[in-house]
């Protein structure tokens, strides 16, 4: 009986050690995921800045006026072609 208990305690110790390592490994894996997510967020913040600037550039009166004229010219061309 004593040896049985000693064996069980040893098995418990091994199980605890394996469990601890598994939890730590799981923890590290989760931290890897968090790291990836963190970097993804950082990347997207940079992308947001870039897109925000691009959109701001395309909303200036000069750009909008140029875009409108281009659209009008295209429409005029289309109508002329339709008439011919």
């Amino acid at each position: 009986m004593r040896w049985m208990l000693a064996g069980l305690l040893f098995a418990l110790a091994v199980a605890l050690a394996i469990g601890t390592v598994a939890i730590r490994a799981g923890n590290a894996a989760l931290r890897h995921d968090v790291e990836r997510t963190y970097r993804d967020i950082q990347d997207r913040m940079g992308e947001l800045e870039r897109l925000g600037l691009e959109r701001a550039e395309t909303a200036t009166p000069e750009y909008l006026a140029a875009a409108m004229w281009a659209q009008l010219r295209a429409e005029q061309q289309r109508r002329l072609e339709r008439l011919q």
């Binding site: 990347d43 997207r44 940079g46 992308e47 800045e49 870039r50």
Partner: peptide, 8 residues
């Protein structure tokens, strides 16, 4: 490098 698709 600031384009998300390139970074990814």
């Amino acid at each position: 490098i600031d384009v998300l698709s390139v970074v990814e």
